[in-house]
Write a protein that binds this DNA or RNA. Structure first.
Length: 726
DNA sequence: CTACCGGATTTTTTT
DNA sequence: AATCCGGTAG
């Protein structure tokens, strides 16, 4: 390639950058900290810099860029490729980098090559097992607390012994015991939990100088995004990988640190300059994303944080509309307001993918979902985990996991009697006992014709199960989609689902979608093994499933929203106790982190931002009076427009424009006592009583004798003509 | 061994 | 409200 051509392409990487952006991009060797405010073009800088490195001082494969989510990684990879440099660059999340390196160097890490990644559920079940093994009452040692204690310990890079040593009270000492057993169980099953992925790689790099040097040689330039949300293990990895060359580029924003609760250490970014006295520091404070008013509101909010480096974002963007703050009666009214506003925006020409709804907790998605459905507006929820958490999906995955890693007893136990094949608790307990006594895995015991006699009357059933497993085993070398399809049929899962399908064909569809996903994986990675696919699947995050091209409004938690942007944003549930969140009176809240979370949500908005609050909200089944979030009082009045729901809501002002409009308005005349209705779950019923009001409520009694109160505007009730009966 | 019932606990946020 | 667990009955 002629030299001049080369130079032009490098120039084109710089030509449209501002001075600080260019400084960040062209800094090649030595530590670099990019303090990038929200919307300051950080991704642009990272991608340009990666491409610049690959075009000047490094080969693409010597650059590794680490992001927070897979979605961010994919986008970044695409953008770098689009710049014409960087095929072969490593762009991935911390977790997937760790998973891959540990797999590659399993021998040095003292791991089985086919180790499996244990997710939250698996971890829970192992913790429970550990609690039982310690002869503690599972009711007093609720897994939630123990799990987070163990996770915290791992984030601090404390092994069970170190944890026991620093344990103060009796509670911690007991947890140390559980931790130890948990680790043993995990090791027996060749499993690593999410925290282990980081911890084990950090330890490996610490202990194995030769490997560390090899990896340093390979990854000469390390870029880490969202550095404010790294935990101690990630911090250690970052520094171990850059020990000789110090080519560590960290980008982030202390004001967007929102993962303290899972061990993220905001100190990592605040200390960067002390860690690296020779570091170049670039500040990006011009915002290209939001209108002036949105930025002013968000900036005022975040300035209320005391523990904070002062920083002022500015923009040359238009002033824009005022930020709307809306008081609503209850969650339904709030959702109705949001849905109506969205309908109007769509009517005005907005695309659905330009609109997002954020909330503090997942439970808040329910009301908006309902309202959007009633309004005929397509939406998607960023909740990838939920899909993989489905029963039928987990069951199928468990079979596949057993193929990949027969030592995985959590999965084996899950499938041993799914579909029901007459191997119950007693039999399983006997088999497990035999396993413990013989120092073998549960799988080995099941497969061993001798030991199987232990099963007594159920021996024949265990026999057949063993044969099934043996016959499935060869599928481990098949392409993932094929393995899944075969397992689905031969395990009897498919028949079982079809059997139950009478009313519900969704589970089968879900499995089909899973297989389709596997197909996609094979296309992208033709050499991809089942093991790799499983790995990728277990490391999928919630945001990773959102699809801009889906033509749908996006709903997600504030945490998931980090790094994204939308022209139109609604943040709902701005109530004291919800945002800022308060679990209960004696669990302290990190108010500053909550405020940063709110800040993150607000700064996702490019043009229109609406914050809503409901005076009454259902919490744990009870309706509670809620006070508006103190954060709302911290906003600058000039930039805010306060609205009462119903005062001048953006309801049908162009009444016929917009999508099929079955919006939350019903004709009360169509409803009277005696009206026949159909409900998905309860079947056919008859309206008994009506309570008209701003929302029409109705008491419905169903054929089965069930009686339910519904809000007609939102309930999934279909009116029936009398002659439709029978 | 399965099926069902009542009580307890849950979710705050996630790779 | 919904799920999950343990216990009991069949």
């Amino acid at each position: 390639m002629p030299r001049s051509h080369h130079d032009t392409s490098v120039d084109s990487l710089l030509v449209d950058l501002t001075e600080p952006q260019r400084a960040a991009v062209t800094h090649t060797d030595g530590p670099l900290l990019v303090l990038a405010g929200a919307g300051s073009g950080k991704t642009r800088v990272i991608t340009r810099r990666a491409a610049y490195l690959a075009a000047t001082v490094a080969r693409p494969h010597q650059v590794v860029a680490i992001t927070f989510t897979n979605k961010a990684a994919n986008e970044m990879r695409d953008r770098i490729l689009a710049l014409g440099a960087g095929a072969g660059m490593t762009v991935c999340t911390f977790h997937s980098l760790c998973a891959r390196l540990l797999r590659m160097h399993h021998d040095r890490a003292d791991l089985a090559p086919n180790y499996t990644i244990f997710d939250q559920d698996d971890r829970r079940s192992l913790v429970k097992q550990a609690v039982r093994a310690c002869e503690l009452d599972p009711r007093n040692w609720r897994s939630g607390h123990v799990e987070s204690a163990i996770s915290a310990a791992k984030n601090e890079m404390l092994d069970p012994r170190a944890f026991a040593e620093q344990a103060r009270g009796w509670v911690d000492k007991t947890i140390a015991g559980i931790y130890e057993v948990y680790e043993r169980l995990l090791a027996e099953q060749q499993g690593l939990d999410f925290d282990d992925l980081l911890l084990r790689l950090a330890r490996l790099l610490q202990d194995d100088d030769e490997l560390r040097e090899r990896l340093e040689e390979r990854f000469r330039y390390v870029l880490i995004d969202e550095y404010q949300d790294t935990n101690n293990a990630q911090y250690a990895i970052a520094h171990l990988l850059t020990r000789e060359r110090k080519n560590l580029c960290a980008t982030g924003d202390p004001d967007q640190s929102i993962y303290g609760w899972r061990g993220a250490n905001i100190g990592n970014i605040l200390r960067f300059e002390q860690d690296h006295p020779d570091a170049e520091v670039v500040r990006l404070e011009q915002n290209y994303r939001s209108t002036r008013r949105i930025l002013a509101a968000a900036g005022r909010l975040i300035s209320a944080n005391v523990n904070r480096k002062d920083k002022e974002l500015w923009t040359e963007n238009a002033e824009g509309a005022q930020v709307r703050v809306v008081d609503c009666d209850d969650a339904a009214a709030e959702a109705g307001y949001v849905a109506a506003g969205i309908a109007e925006a769509l009517a005005a020409g907005r695309q659905p993918c330009e609109i997002a709804i954020f909330y503090r907790i997942n439970a808040l998605s329910l009301a908006p979902e309902l309202a959007l459905r009633r309004a005929g507006i397509a939406y998607q929820i960023a909740r990838g985990q939920a899909f993989y958490g489905r029963k039928e999906i987990k069951d199928l995955l468990a079979y596949v996991r057993v193929l990949v890693n027969p030592a995985d007893a959590v999965s084996l136990r899950r499938v041993v009697n799914v579909p029901a094949r007459g191997i119950g608790k007693t039999t399983l307990a006997r088999l497990e006992q035999a396993a413990v006594e013989g120092g073998r895995t549960l799988y080995e015991v099941i497969m061993d014709p001798e030991a199987r006699r232990i099963a007594g009357r159920s021996a024949e059933k265990v026999n057949r199960f063993a044969e099934l497993l043996a016959s499935l085993q060869p599928l481990v070398d098949s392409p993932p989609s094929e393995a899944l399809t075969e397992v689905f049929t031969r395990s009897g899962l498919r028949a079982c689902l079809l059997d139950e399908e009478k009313a519900d064909e969704v589970p089968t569809e879900n499995v089909e979608n899973l297989i389709a996903e596997a197909h996609k994986f094979e296309t992208a990675e033709p050499e991809g093994t089942l093991t790799r696919w499983l790995e990728e699947t277990s490391l999928l995050g919630d945001v990773d499933t959102v699809d801009e091209s889906a033509g749908a409004v996006t709903l997600m938690t504030l945490h998931a929203a980090k790094g994204l942007e939308f022209p139109v944003v609604y943040v709902i549930g701005l109530e004291d106790g919800l945002l800022p969140f308060r679990r209960d009176e004696d669990t302290p809240t990190d108010l500053e982190e909550e405020r940063r979370l709110c800040f993150v949500g607000m700064t996702r908005a490019m043009e229109e931002l609406t914050l809503t609050h409901a005076r009454y909200r259902l919490r744990r089944g009870q309706e509670l009076r809620n006070v508006a979030s103190p954060f709302l009082d911290e906003l600058p009045e000039d930039e805010i427009e306060w609205l009462e729901e119903g005062e001048d809501p953006p309801t049908r002002r162009g009444s016929r424009a917009g999508p099929p409009d079955e919006a939350p308005s019903i004709n009360p005349a169509q409803w009277r006592p005696g009206t026949l209705v159909y409900h998905q779950e309860h079947g056919v019923g008859r309206v008994q009583l009506l309570h008209p009001g701003s929302l029409n409520r109705a008491l419905v009694v169903f054929e089965g004798g069930d009686a339910e109160n519904f809000i007609l505007e939102y309930a999934d009730l279909t009116r029936m003509d009398p002659d439709e009966l029978d």
